[in-house]
Every structure is written in structure tokens, then in C-alpha cells.
Amino acid sequence: MQFPLRSSPQKDSALKNTEPIIKFENFSFYYGKKKVISDVSFPVYKNSITALIGPSGCGKTTVLKSINLLYRENPEARAEGKIIFEGVNILNDKYDVVELRKKIGMVFQKPNPFPGSIYDNVVFGPRIFGVKNRKKLNDICERSLKLAALWDEVKNDLRKSALNLSGGQQQRLCIARTLALEPEVILLDEPASALDPFSTLKIEDLMYQLKNNYTILIVTHNMQQAARISDYVAFLFAGEDMIARLIEFGKSNEVFIKPVKKLTEDYIVGRLG
């Protein structure tokens, strides 16, 4: 077994790889008749961290939930345009939802451990995909918890309820739960917003390590966090018509240092939202 070593904080290391794993093309989104996102196009590069930033209510979470088709649980919601993954537009039913969600994991804003033990939580995914072998499940559990930097804290308490963990631990458990399915892409929806600064640092650390093997798309409100950890950044903004549009997309060290658009600059320095 090989675990990814901590990568150097050199951001450009990942940028050498410029093959997009997901591509948004003219993506629009509706709730009922109301348009909420209009004409968004940007790539998500493999083995990099892409941050989605923008004021609250500008559809960042909706973008995430479109990638794993979770928006479909809401009968009012409808997406248009294309999201290309593995050469297929996943929006037009060609891609099997369950298989897609196995390959694209998601971690939510609030930690949402399932009722049950830590172990049950981690092996939830493998179990529903038919892994029954005890040994295999144990291996998956250990490996995922180690990847999520939680193993040392919980290795003696695997049978205890996941609800007894602290908020930060719960969130890392949710990351471990996602990693257990060995996804290609991990979507993180403000994963640290409900956590204390120390737990936040731990999660950021974790993302650094994970990006060697995974592609990460993270929604965040925290500019410093976005600047610290992301390789690419996409800035979404909803104007007076309440329809979100992509204002700017680029490498983080360029966007954060010298944004092209005035709007982006205003947002980054805190003059907006």
C-alpha cells in the first residue's frame, strides 16, 4: 500500500498537468421557471484544487450538486448546457447516476455522519457497492481513515458512534467516507465553515495531500482559504437580476494577485458581498 506523501506547498507542481477532467460548457440552471445560473463555462483540471468563490446565494453549491447530479432529488430543478465528464455529457442521462456518484464524491457544508459506528460510516459506500469481504472492508476502512488523517485518533474506537466525534473529526470522517469509494473527483461544499480554526487547518492540510491523487473542487467563502489552497479559482457573481454568471476563471496566483475584472478585485478585497 502506498500513501500519498505530503506535497510541497509549491502550487505550480500540479499545474503542469493541464488535462481537464470535467468541463462546464454553457451550463445554465433553473428552479421551476426561474433561471438562477446562466451560461457558465470553465474546466476543472485533473489533480488540482479548483476553488469556487462568490457571495452567498450565487449558486456555488448548485454548481457542485450538478456535477454529481444531486440536484435531481429536487423535482423543481433543471440543468441545461453541458457538463463533460469522461467525454460524456452527464446532464443528458447517458451517465449512470449511481456510477457517477461513485466516481465523484461529495463532502457537505455541515458534517453529516450517518447514525451508526465510525466503521459503518466509512464502509457505507463499499458496502452498497457489494463489498462483503470482512478483510477487504477493514482494509478500506483503515486506508480511508489514514488518508483522511483520522486513523490515529479513532483506531481504537471504530465501533463507537460517529455522532460522538467532534465537529472537525466528523468532517474528516465524512471525507474518509468519500475516499472509501476511491473517487476521481471530490466536491467539497464549504467543508470548514462549521469548524474551528484548528480543524480548518487540518482539513486544508488534508486537501493538500489529497490533490496528488484526486481532483478537488471546493466551494468556499473564505478568501484566504481559497488563496492558500487552490490552484485555480472560478468567481461566480449574481447581479441585480439574481442570475449567477461566471465573472472570472484562472490560475489562483494570477486571479488573486492581479484580477482582470474590476468586480473580482472588489470581491477579493472585501468591497462586495
Partner: peptide
Amino acid sequence: VLREGAYALG
């Protein structure tokens, strides 16, 4: 979020 967590895992 609990249901969505499960759906997100396939």
C-alpha cells in the same frame, strides 16, 4: 443533508 450524503455515495 443526511439523505444527500447517502445519495452522494451512490
